[in-house]
């Protein structure tokens, strides 16, 4: 007799667990309006704010006089694990002091190789490069991913101490 009892008990307890599961999904179905977590991405572009620390791409900020803080010291190039930063900084004789000094010519950044590990930012002694919060960097040609971070005609901010 207990075998038959177990048989029916297994049916009813099984059905009960099924209904409990359906209650969970049913709750979300009924409250779909409240519980939906999807973000309407391209539509919410205007209001979408990334966190301040979000690491999107390496940029070099320039002020209004087209001055940046990069001294061409190559610290970031050494810190980079993937070789995504190349510094071209020939030594130029300073006309005032007569000493040879590195001057940044091109700060080349290969976004295609970058893992956004933040080590270059940490290594920079003058805070010349920072992480930007933008994230839409897809392009049709991979050569476009190689950027020169210092703008043409820009120069070192004289207030920056080396």
């Amino acid at each position: 007799m207990s075998a038959i009892g177990n048989y029916f008990r297994s049916i009813f307890s099984g059905l009960k667990t099924l209904f409990q599961g359906m209650a969970v999904t049913g709750y979300y179905f009924r409250n779909a309006r409240k519980e939906i977590i999807t973000q309407q991405y391209p539509d919410n572009k205007d209001t979408l704010r990334m966190y301040d620390r979000f690491r999107g791409i390496v940029v070099m900020p320039h002020d209004e006089n087209n001055l940046h803080a990069c001294t061409g010291c190559s610290a970031c190039e050494i810190a980079c694990p993937n070789g995504s930063i190349e510094i071209i900084a020939p030594r130029v004789v300073d006309p005032e002091t007569g000493k040879k000094k590195k001057v940044i010519n091109q700060h080349i950044y290969h976004y295609s190789m970058c893992t956004l590990c933040n080590l270059c930012i940490l290594s920079c002694p003058t805070e010349a490069i920072v992480m930007d919060q933008t994230f839409e960097h897809a392009v049709y040609d991979r050569s476009l991913l190689t950027q020169i971070l210092n703008k043409p005609g820009s120069s070192l901010n004289p207030n920056v101490k080396e």
Binding site: T25, Y28, F29, A32, I36
Partner: peptide
């Protein structure tokens, strides 16, 4: 649509 509403989607 029904699946989406069960799954917190639109």
């Amino acid at each position: 649509k029904v699946a989406a509403w069960f799954q917190l989607r639109i």
